[in-house]
């Protein structure tokens, strides 16, 4: 199947963190940004807001140093997942993700990352600025790039990272 990923146009993000709240609600049933799989890093004094989330990389930075090989790609969905029964909750994956996309659940202490809500990402649906997109990995990146200048820098950065990984 065709791989779809979440992408962001950071300049559109205004830092309201609605994505964090709907993410935690969808996954946990309550409101708690610390359980959100998407994380908006803000620097208000500079007017910067940047959402971070799992980019479903080709090479798994998070899996590289996992002592129990608990992080794998799900054959069926293409998503990166942590196998609960193998995971020892050491947090190495949290440290090794260059995109700040993995965190430890504050109660359960297991690593959590974006699961694209099973193909219907709620953050995309709720974002008031439409800064988040759920796109086909291969094709629409290029299409988006042509349309928008802001997009190029950020996506090139990610793309280079992904390309280097292949």
């Amino acid at each position: 199947m065709k791989k779809k990923i979440l992408v962001v146009q950071p300049k559109k993000c205004d830092g309201c963190k609605i994505c964090e709240l709907i993410c935690s609600f969808t996954h946990e049933g309550f409101f708690s940004p610390s359980t959100s799989r998407i994380k908006v890093v803000t620097e208000r004094e500079k007017g910067l807001d940047n959402p971070f989330f799992c980019l479903q990389c080709e090479e798994l930075f998070c899996a590289e140093k996992c002592p129990t090989e608990a992080i794998v790609r799900d054959e069926e969905t293409g998503l990166i997942v942590t196998l609960k029964e193998k995971c020892v909750r050491c947090g190495v994956c949290v440290q090794s993700c260059p995109f700040l996309a993995v965190s430890l659940h504050p109660d359960k202490k297991i690593p959590i990352r974006c699961d694209l809500c099973g193909g219907d990402p709620q953050c995309v649906k709720w974002c008031p600025e439409k800064a988040l997109y759920y796109v086909d990995f291969e094709t629409s990146l290029l299409a988006e790039k042509r349309k928008n200048k802001d997009f190029i820098g950020y996506m090139n950065f990610i793309f280079e990272r992904l390309k280097g990984a292949r």
């Binding site: 205004d14 830092g15 309201c16 963190k17 609605i18 007017g47 807001d49 008031p128 600025e129």
Partner: peptide, 15 residues
């Protein structure tokens, strides 16, 4: 104006 800055859980982002 450079950009909007919203408060928590606000879709209006008047800031």
């Amino acid at each position: 104006v450079v950009k909007s800055e919203a408060c928590s859980a606000c879709p209006i982002h008047c800031g």
